[in-house]
C-alpha cells in the first residue's frame, strides 16, 4: 500500500495555505499508510543560504544545541517537536562532516536552500499534528504515509528520502533490485543510512543529477534501471515530477487547476482542495514523466 501526495502552487497567493492543503492530503491517506508519515515543504530561505532538517532521535534539544553551537557560531536553531531546523550560511560539505564526525546520534533528514523535511513513526494524523504542518507555508510540498513492507518501522525507514541538496523522493511500491543497486551506488560514493528500497532510488536520482542529467532524463533512465513496482514523486527546489512504472499497478491521480497541481494515490486525498471538482483530473500514463516547475 502506502499513500503518496504532492501539491505545487501556481498561484503564489495560496502559499500561506500550503501546510493546510498538505496536512489534509496526508490525513486522508492514513488508511493507506498507518505506520509512519513524513513530508517535505519547499520555502525559499531569504536570510540564510542553507537550511538543515535534523531528527534528534533520543538526543535532548539543549544538549544538541550546545554541541552544535560549539562548532558553528552563526546559526538560527529552531526546535519543532523532535526535529530541528538549522538555518545558516555554512556550506553542506562542512555541516555534513560535522554531523558525521561529531553528532553521530542525530539524523540529518534533508538540507538545501528551500527544503524542510519532517518524518516520524506513528499515525499520519498524529505526525502531522506534532510538526504543526497546518501552519507551515511554502511553494510546494510532497508527503508520504507508510505501510511498511520490506524494512522496519523506524524514522530512517520513513519517507521522504533526501539524498541530495533540495531533493526528495516519496514512493508507493517496492523495488526488487535495490540491494544490487545500493552496492553499485556505494562504489560510486553514495551513502545510505537504511536498508530501505526507496532510499536507493533517491540515491540513484541524486547520482544521476550530480552527473548533470536533467530530472526528466534521470527518471526516464530510472524506468530501465529500477526494477519493481512504483509510483514516484520527486521534489526539487523549483517543483516536482511524477513517474509510474510501465505496468502501473500502483495508483496515482492528478488534479490540475489554474491555481495548483495536486497528485495523490487516490482522489479522496484531494477532495478538500479548493475547486477540485472542477479541476482537470487524470491518471498519469505509465512510463511517462510529468514535471511541474522544473
Amino acid at each position: 500500500m502506502c499513500g503518496i501526495v504532492g501539491i505545487y502552487l501556481k498561484n503564489k497567493k495560496l502559499e500561506k495555505s500550503l501546510g493546510r492543503f498538505l496536512s489534509g492530503m496526508l490525513k486522508n491517506m492514513s488508511s493507506r499508510g498507518p505506520d509512519s508519515a513524513g513530508f517535505a515543504i519547499y520555502k525559499e530561505e531569504k536570510k540564510y543560504k542553507y537550511k538543515y532538517s535534523i531528527c534528534l532521535n533520543k538526543i535532548n534539544f539543549l544538549t544538541f544545541k550546545k554541541q552544535f553551537t560549539k562548532v558553528i557560531k552563526k546559526a538560527k536553531i529552531e526546535q519543532i517537536s523532535d526535529h530541528v531546523i538549522i538555518k545558516t550560511n555554512e556550506k553542506p560539505e562542512k555541516i555534513l562532516k560535522i554531523i558525521n564526525e561529531k553528532l553521530k546520534d542525530i539524523s540529518l533528514v534533508g538540507y538545501g536552500k528551500s527544503i524542510e523535511i519532517f518524518k516520524q513513526v506513528g499515525n499520519p494524523e498524529k505526525v502531522v499534528k506534532k510538526f504543526n504542518l497546518e501552519k507551515l507555508e511554502g511553494s510546494h510540498g510532497i508527503g508520504h504515509t507508510r505501510m511498511a513492507t520490506e524494512s522496519a518501522i523506524t524514522t530512517d525507514g520513513s519517507h521522504p528520502y533526501s539524498t541530495g541538496e533540495d531533493e526528495c523522493l516519496v514512493h508507493n511500491g517496492s523495488l526488487s533490485n535495490h540491494n544490487n543497486l545500493r552496492r553499485e551506488l556505494r562504489k560510486k560514493g553514495s551513502k545510505f543510512n537504511s536498508e530501505n528500497d526507496t532510499e536507493v532510488a533517491a540515491g540513484y536520482i541524486s547520482n544521476s543529477l550530480k552527473n548533470k542529467n536533467t530530472l526528466k532524463d534521470t527518471l526516464l533512465s530510472g524506468l530501465k534501471d529500477l526494477d519493481g513496482f512504483y509510483t514516484f514523486i520527486t521534489g526539487t527546489r523549483k517543483g516536482f515530477a511524477i513517474v509510474r512504472d510501465e505496468i502501473a499497478c500502483k495508483p496515482a491521480v492528478i488534479a490540475e487547476t489554474n491555481d495548483y497541481v495536486a497528485i495523490a494515490s487516490e482522489f479522496q486525498a484531494m477532495a478538500h482542495l479548493p475547486n477540485v471538482n472542477n479541476a482537470k483530473i487524470f491518471e498519469p500514463d505509465p512510463g511517462i514523466v510529468y514535471t511541474w516547475g522544473n
Binding site: 487516490e266 482522489f267 479522496q268 486525498a269 484531494m270 477532495a271 478538500h272
Partner: peptide, 10 residues
Amino acid sequence: FTVINPEGNH
C-alpha cells in the same frame, strides 16, 4: 436517489 459529496470514498 441522488448521492452527494462522494469525495472519492470507496
